[in-house]
Each structure stands twice: as C-alpha cells, then as structure tokens.
C-alpha cells in the first residue's frame, strides 16, 4: 500500500496522477456502494423483524388494556412507558398501533385506545412532529391527529391548509373536514390558493363516505374568492343533487372566466336543469372550444334533435374534437360522414 501511495503521488504528470487518484476513489466508492446495497437488504430484514417483535409487544399490551376490565392498569401503563417508549422508533410504532386500534374499533374500546395515547404522553411527540421542518413528519402527525380526533392541536394545523407541500395540505384539509361536524367545509374560508383536482376529489370522497354529519348547503361557496373553490362547489352541488341551487348556478354560464362557464354547464347537466338551453344555443357561436364541447354535451342530455339543428350552421367552424362530438351525439348526416357501402 505505501508503495502504491508513493507511486501515485510521486507521479510527475499531474493528469496521470489525477486519473490514478480518481480510479482509487471510484474503486472505494464502488465497494462502499456494494456494501450499502447488501447492508440495505440485510438491514431491511433486521428492521422488519425488530418492528414485528415490537408490534407484537404493543398489540398485546394495548389489547389487554382495552379488554381486561378488572385490572388496575395505571402502574403498568407508566412502567411500560418508561421501559419501552423511550425512543422515537418505539413511540412511532406505539402511535401506529393505537391508530390501528382506533381505526378498526368503535365505542368504548376505541375510547380506551385513545386514552392510552394520552396516558403515554404521546401528545408531546405529536406536537414536536407538527413543528418539525420535515414535511413527511408533519403530514404523518396531522393524519394521526385526525384519526385520533385530537382537536386541541388544530391551531397548529391550521397554517398547513396553505402549505406548499401537497401531502401536508391534503392531511390538513382532511383534518378540518372532520373537525366541525356542522360545517365540514368551513376551512375553505381559510384557503389562500387554489385547490387542485386531487384535493377536490379527496374532499368530495370524505364528504361522501366518511363524513357522518348532515350534508350542508354548498351554495355559499359559490361566492368564494377562489375560482377553484367555486368550481368545486358546483361539482359538489351536482354530486349531492342540490337542485334547489340551480338558480345560483345559472348566472355562471355567462361569467367571464372560461372554466367557471364550463363547470357551470356541467353542473346544470348533472342537475338536469334545462332552463339554460336557449341561452347556451345563443352563445354557442362565440364560445371557446372547451365550452362549446360542454354545450354540445348539454344539448345531447337535455335538448332535442331540433336543438342540434339550431347550432348546425356553426359546427363547420368548430375544431375537430367538437365536430366529432357533435356528429357522435346528434347523428346528423353531413357530407363529411364516411360510411360503409
């Protein structure tokens, strides 16, 4: 080795020296990476075993606590915390296990599981996670708060409604939907930038499937400052069939924003509101491509073949996608149709 070292560093030609040093560095890095690969594989196996052992321990303890009514657990809880919940790894698994119990059980058993969370002073851990600089830790903590219905930390979670990180924002939205049963969407007032399609799907899903309260009237959100919230309100009015809100949707078909016009028409289609037919036919010629497409859809669902004939003269000026849509829905024969003999 010393000879090799001498050989390299006494080389006069610096290019050669540089290349030799690089070779050695690369070789060391290769060995390091190979070790990393093997270690990664082995580490995964060891980690999995360790986690499984720990989960078993916790499952046993929590299960016993929930289902054993006679014993006095206070001392045992404290001793468990001091012995087994010292580090981050252990605390994270404990939270995960309690979450699992809380998500799958209901009634008294669930309450007991959550009480264990407080007894083990895991709230402090959550608080620390919410203040962490790492987005994935924040997101996970918010999710836990939501599942365990920990509302006392909502002041810490509220700023995340406008987080630039998708995952964090998503969890914050979810949290606030569950936070107020009477008004699940009141967090929308605190949103400062547009909600994405994914977030809309997400919120809609929660309202349809996991939300247990009464479905509120969504029309107030049609007056929101953000267009995406207005669009979302329209979608959700359609989804929940709040046809009494049709009069509130109608004005949007003449809004200056193209997206609002488009979604308003889609909403009216879902609500089966034919009142806009005349106006839409009248506006067809001057409309943008996307809105024209939606108008054709409107006529095919709520109009008649006469209505299709009324706009036929404008179709040749439309783009291909709209011409194709028109033909498919109206089935009106034009010279452009190619059929089999």
């Amino acid at each position: 080795m010393p000879e090799l070292y001498d050989y390299i560093f006494n080389e006069k030609n610096w290019v050669l020296r540089f290349n030799m040093i690089c070779s050695v560095v690369f070789l060391l890095m290769i060995l390091f990476t190979v070790v990393l690969i093997l270690r990664s594989r082995i580490y995964k196996i060891i980690e999995e075993k360790k986690t499984a052992r720990y989960q078993e321990l916790l499952n046993d303890f929590v299960g016993t606590y929930i289902f054993e009514e006679d014993e006095d657990f206070k001392a045992r809880i404290d001793s468990f915390r001091l012995n087994y919940l010292k580090g981050n790894f252990e605390q994270e698994i404990a939270i995960k296990i309690i979450l699992n119990f809380a998500e799958n059980l209901k009634g008294e058993s669930r309450e007991k599981a959550i009480s264990l969370f407080y007894e083990w002073k895991l709230l402090e851990k959550l608080r620390a996670e919410l203040n962490s600089s790492k987005w994935h830790r924040k997101a996970k903590a918010i999710h836990t708060c939501c599942s365990l219905q920990i509302w006392e930390l909502s002041h810490l979670i509220e700023p995340f409604l406008n987080s630039s990180k998708t995952e964090v924002r998503q969890q914050a939205l979810l949290y606030f939907i569950h936070r107020s049963p009477e008004d699940p969407l009141n967090f929308l007032d605190k949103i400062e930038f547009d909600i994405t399609l994914w977030e809309q799907i997400f919120i809609q899903y929660e309202l349809q499937n996991n939300y247990k309260g009464d479905i509120p009237d969504f029309s107030p959100y049609l007056k929101h400052t953000l267009n995406s919230v207005k669009i979302f309100a329209m979608k959700i009015i359609a989804e929940f069939n709040q046809f009494e809100n049709s009069p509130n949707i109608l004005p949007f078909i003449e809004d200056e924003n193209e997206n609002l016009r488009q979604y308003a028409i889609e909403c009216l289609i879902e609500l089966q509101e034919p009142a806009a037919l005349g106006l839409l036919k009248g506006n067809f010629a001057l409309e943008t491509s996307s809105v024209q497409y939606t108008i054709i859809e409107y006529i095919s669902k709520l109009g008649s073949s006469e209505d299709f004939e009324d706009i036929q003269k404008f179709i040749s000026q439309c783009d291909w996608i709209n011409r194709l849509k028109y033909y498919k829905n109206s089935k009106i024969l034009t010279p452009e149709i190619i059929s089999f003999s």
Binding site: D319, W320, I321, R323, L324, Y327, E336, I337, I338, S339, F340
Partner: peptide, 10 residues
C-alpha cells in the same frame, strides 16, 4: 361491426 365515421380529421 363497422360504423360510419367523420372524415377530415384534425
């Protein structure tokens, strides 16, 4: 089965 279709595509 074959269907009729529109010509002059984009």
């Amino acid at each position: 089965e074959p269907t009729a279709f529109l010509g002059n595509p984009a």
